[in-house]
Nucleic acid binder design. Structure first.
Lengths: 337, 337
DNA sequence: CTGAAAGCGCTAACAC
DNA sequence: GTGTTAGCGCTTTCAG
């Protein structure tokens, strides 16, 4: 491994000078600079990252901590999100450290990463209504940015969808098609986005004088399996819904499957909607009416917010950047086209 | 941030002694050890990772480098794979560094990570028949482990599916159901797994005296969209296939969609098979006949191989560990049940 | 314009 | 048992 010292020897200069030449300081003679630059290229010099990090006491690394299994964050959606984060990180020269945690105590992992100085900041996904991670990071002032809001103090950099607005679009869509008995399959309500969406749906329907029958609200699903089972319950009721709103596309697809098993024709005698617009939503049968969010870009946006936050970490009076995105309704056959 | 020095001052010992007490060296008096341990807990001492890494010149970090978009590696499949890697890494105390690369020159990223000493080893996914990454890493002797083999020298730690065997199962399955004209939709043949699978399918069918009509082999798809388009081509032929073999589940689902658009009843007058058994395969319509691989565990296995390789990096004569897994055929409705 | 010296926090020979 | 010293590779005062 070639070090600054090796380089210095080669060009007959001190380590200091070489370091400065490479760092682009102005107080280096053009001759020396060229000499050094050439030699560096020649010998294939690349700084030792760990040495730099130790000395700067910053890591140029962003952390994302994920639960062992991605409950509530559907896979295709997540993959794109992660890619968005990764792309933006590398654009700004940051490494991305991904940690999977299997224990209950997620917070311990955050603490460990902070105190062992492994990352400069965190990206938080799938915020909870009461989110210990957010609380902790806010208290300690450690940089982070989130995709999603929380119930308590939203005083941190974040990007979020306007879930209420999105569900308003769904409500309009279904109401226009004369649905009155509407079923819902959603993730646990301690997940912030799930709560917002349910509230939004209720509000949206109320505009049309429709209220949700509590029996038709199935809570606790986040994947196809859950969607399947909950849809079976709903459709087996004496007075079943004519439309089912799934809170993500996976759930909706599970519901489609259940409907089919029960001899229903989705899009004809039952409407089903999803959320996320994963690539498959267009290519499943029937194609899914859903809400589109530019998840890849969202990943990038959160990352940019975080990096900005890290760079202004010293500033006492930085502005908290927040972006709320208006999602878009994509109408396909599953809701009657 | 509390450092060894702080600790040393507190207990009136030298930094060295404190370090050794914490590292569990035997030449420390029990009294000192206890004193130190207690103080460390008290002050919340955690070693500075970067300092440790600089001094050990090892990073305790595994790297995985991904193309900007996961072509050829279906999303749900990939998520599980990554989770498997992440879980195992953290079990062994390794960090996982994920890098997304958008440029053509993937290899440059590998080189950079190595020479800037950012990771101790790499996990390679989606091996190519002629794989520059593998070649380079083999040449330089930098530790890595791969999911998949290559055409050239397979002299490295790897886990792979037995793709030939898997396709044999598909061939048996279709032949038993009297299919003779069989269509294929597969990724580009420079991807090793795609090539192996195609070879395997041909071999498997030959046992029944069936040969693949070249017109029925569509090459170049890896997602639903490609599957959809290629299936349309196949089914639009004057003498269309009675079965379509998709080389992954996404492609197969796209094909299902195309078949439906053309008025065919998948599982009845057209058989379609997939590969991977992503969670959705069970819950789409019709449920997909496919090949199951324990992808989460595979991720873990590759990771273990890599860690083992890293730990034996000095040894001149380490044994190259390789595991080839027998996949399993999952029969569902899409192929007639 | 350049170099000597200090230090980031830690570990490991090597004395005592 | 414990401390002194040196050094991982880099950046950054501070003199000259």
């Amino acid at each position: 491994m070639v070090t600054l010292k090796d380089l210095a020897q080669r060009v007959n200069r001190s380590v200091t000078t070489v370091s400065r030449a490479l760092a682009g300081y102005s107080d280096v003679s053009p001759k020396t600079r060229e000499l050094v630059t050439k030699a560096a290229a020649d010998m294939g010099y690349i700084p030792n990252t760990m040495a730099q990090r130790l000395q700067k006491s910053s890591t140029d690394t962003l952390g994302i901590i994920l639960p062992g299994y991605g409950e509530g964050f559907s896979e295709p959606f997540f993959t794109e999100f992660l890619a968005g984060i990764g792309k933006m990180s590398s654009k700004y020269g940051y490494d991305l450290l991904v940690t999977y945690v299997h224990t209950r105590d997620e917070l311990a992992t955050y603490k460990k990463m902070i105190v062992s100085r492994r990352v400069d900041g965190f990206i938080i996904v799938r915020t909870l209504c009461v989110d210990e991670r957010v609380k902790y990071l806010c208290e300690t002032g450690f940089p982070f940015a989130a995709f999603g809001r929380v119930d308590h103090d939203n005083c941190f950099p974040l990007v979020d969808e306007d879930g209420e607005y999105a569900m308003g679009l769904i409500a309009d869509h279904l109401a226009e098609r004369n649905h009155k008995r509407i079923g819902v399959i959603c993730p646990p309500q301690f997940i912030k986005s799930a709560k917002v969406r349910l509230t939004g749906l209720k509000k949206g329907l109320l505009k049309y004088g429709i209220t949700l029958d509590p029996d038709l609200v199935q809570i606790g699903s986040f994947d196809q399996k859950g969607g399947y089972e909950h849809a079976k319950l709903l459709l087996g009721l004496p007075d079943p819904p004519t439309a089912i709103v799934g809170f993500n596309d996976m759930v909706a697809m599970g519901a489609v499957h259940a409907a089919h098993d029960m001899g229903l024709n989705v899009g004809k005698n039952l409407a089903i909607t999803g959320f996320d617009d994963i690539p498959m939503a267009e290519f499943c049968r029937p194609p899914l009416t859903t809400i589109r969010q530019p998840i890849n870009q969202i990943g990038g946006m959160v990352t940019e917010l975080l990096i900005q936050r890290i760079k202004t970490a010293g500033d006492t009076d930085f502005e908290v950047q927040q972006t709320i995105l208006k999602p878009e309704l994509i109408v396909r056959e599953s809701s009657g086209g």
